[in-house]
């Protein structure tokens, strides 16, 4: 009698403490979402809004972990190297994850080291100056740069980002020389241009609040169509450049994730980007939902790498073997 009671008790304790079967009950604890940009930039704000909505569907909080650096690759690279593929660590994947390996030695292989989950949205890029700057229009910048080669400094969220690559393409076309200053992300580039440390800021729409308040002036945007928020601001095409630059992004985990867990996370994020409240937040930053499911995202990664390879080669930034 006493013995069975003891056995029952120990069985109960064991049952209580044993780790629950992973995939079925996922998630049983908060999920870490690595955002490889400093807090306060447009990616950070968008990802927080999406994560908040997704966490409701997952039933566990999603903790945003800002790990900035390396043009948005330090966070995902750290994840690929160290995190367990249990679904509790996922990361926002900026386009630099695909582009940087083409330009230099990296610690990751974009096609092998990640489990892609879902493609979510993209950015609106723009060039801003401080409100009291002598540059009233983009033409002023070009004129100044022609007279003073290399003197125009522009802040980007990192070398090899679409902002850097895009700006170099524009400069190449104009035949001007401008100097890139790599920061870690929007919060830092905002401070850099506000404080007068660089002349221009080339960043995704994290400058919005400051432009609206009249502290910064938006010179141009890089989308195909003019922005509804800033109707008077010219696009690249209106300025005569045959370019549209955006930089779509999604989320991924370390390689080797259980497909069931991938599906659970995918579904939650899909519902999140379908949420009108989330879309409203995104719209404020001129971001549009650009959803792709897991399979399409994987295919898309390959296409992007092929396309980027050509651009990087053209600019002479390709890695030397």
């Amino acid at each position: 009698m006493k013995r069975t009671a003891l056995a029952l008790l120990s069985a109960a304790i064991l049952a209580a403490v044993a780790a629950p079967a992973a995939a079925q009950n996922f998630p049983t604890k908060p999920i870490n979402l690595i955002v490889p940009w400093p807090a306060g930039g447009s990616t950070d704000i968008a990802m927080r809004a999406i994560a908040e909505a997704a966490s409701k569907h997952l039933g566990q909080p999603i903790i945003v972990d800002n790990r900035a650096g390396g043009s948005g690759t330090v966070g995902p690279a750290q994840m690929a190297a160290t995190a367990k593929p249990d679904g509790y660590t996922i990361a926002q994947i900026p386009i630099t994850i695909f582009r940087l390996p083409l330009m230099q030695k990296t610690t990751w292989d974009a096609q092998k080291d990640f489990t892609y989950i879902a493609h979510l949205t993209g950015y609106t890029f723009g060039v801003t100056v401080r409100a009291d700057s002598e540059f009233k229009t983009w033409a002023d910048v070009v004129k100044f740069a022609k007279a003073n080669p290399g003197k125009v400094t522009y802040a980007t969220p990192g070398a090899g980002t679409s902002l850097h690559i895009g700006m170099e393409q524009i400069a190449a076309r104009e035949g001007i020389k401008v100097t890139q200053v790599p920061f870690k992300g929007g919060a830092e580039t905002n401070a850099a241009v506000l404080g007068g440390h660089t002349m221009l800021q080339v960043e995704s729409s994290g400058w919005k609040a400051l432009v609206d308040a009249g502290k910064l002036r938006l010179l141009m945007i890089w989308t195909a169509k003019p922005s509804a928020n800033y109707p008077g601001v010219p696009t690249l095409q209106q300025l005569g450049y045959p370019f549209v630059f955006d930089s779509p992004f999604g989320i991924a985990g370390p390689k080797g994730m259980d497909p069931k867990i991938v599906a659970t996370i995918h579904d939650a994020f899909k519902k999140a980007v379908d949420d009108p409240a989330v879309q409203a937040t995104l719209a404020k930053y001129d971001m549009v939902v650009n959803y792709k499911n897991t399979a399409d995202y994987v295919k898309f990664v390959k296409e992007v790498i092929d396309a980027e390879s050509k651009v990087v080669d053209m600019l002479g930034l390709k890695k030397k073997e």
Partner: peptide
């Protein structure tokens, strides 16, 4: 840690704790 803060501690090869 395990119950209130939901921080998982290692269980080891005998899966205790």
């Amino acid at each position: 840690l395990e119950r209130v803060l939901q921080i998982q501690l290692p269980t080891g090869m005998f899966e205790i704790g």
